[in-house]
Write a protein that binds this DNA or RNA. Sequence first.
DNA 1: TGAATTGTTAAGAG
DNA 2: CCTCTTAACAATTC
Length: 258
Amino acid sequence: MPELPDVEGFRRVLAEHTGEPITAVRVCDAGVLRGVTPRRLDKALRGRRFEPPRRHGKWLIAPADGPVLMLHFGMTGSLSWHGRGEPRHRHDRVVWSFPGGELRLRDMRKLQGVRLAADEDEAGRLLDDLGPDALAASREEFAASLAGRRGRLKSALTDQSLLAGLGNLLADEICWQALVSPLRDVRDLRDDEVAALYRTMRRVLREAVDEGRVPPRDTWLTGARDEPGRPCPRCGTPLSRRRIAGRTTVWCRTCQPG
DNA sequence: TGAATTGTTAAGAG
DNA sequence: CCTCTTAACAATTC
């Protein structure tokens, strides 16, 4: 699930448990650890408290009074709070224990995972290649990210080095709601189309963040994209689909010409 | 069995 | 240097 709205939800989960001391870090599956050992993760965090976490794109950044925990949820990760003794789920990979319960990183596919930066400088370097956060970007920053870019709109919107946070579902949803084809060459976009994309991105992100995911509503593309051949929720034209950069892109050839 | 899945990265082609 | 495509990672479902 994790695109920007999902990660924002995980950030809130963690934010509710800042200030409590971490009593232990248990690694159930080291396959999610990136550049850190179970022992070092536990040693670095045990006894410390998380400070208010922040998010940049799909990264969750959790300073802990020195070291900085960095989480990326890949395609199937989540972070959730559980009472002590709640039976473990088979995909719980790392558990942070607190006096009143525990945070669990659950992730079926283990495509990304957990990093530990020694300090804020190192954390910043890990995020160096990311563009501005999609929710924090101004209209000017958004336009600047697209300016000078060649290639398809879909590729640009999902390129984390241009704009951080949009994934496959969000990019298609934004293009569909903005009435712009994801196949369009970025260089050919008119100013009013770029403006429409920005406004639409803001609205879609706001609503998705409220729900903690891209909502699969009947009136949204996301509610119809799963089964091939479904009609466009807006005009009824059968939805088009095609693989771009290894990801399935869905759009309406009537609403989004070109 | 083959293909699909909301992410990222490397490698090779053009 | 830029952008495109594939494959790989891993687990699961249809």
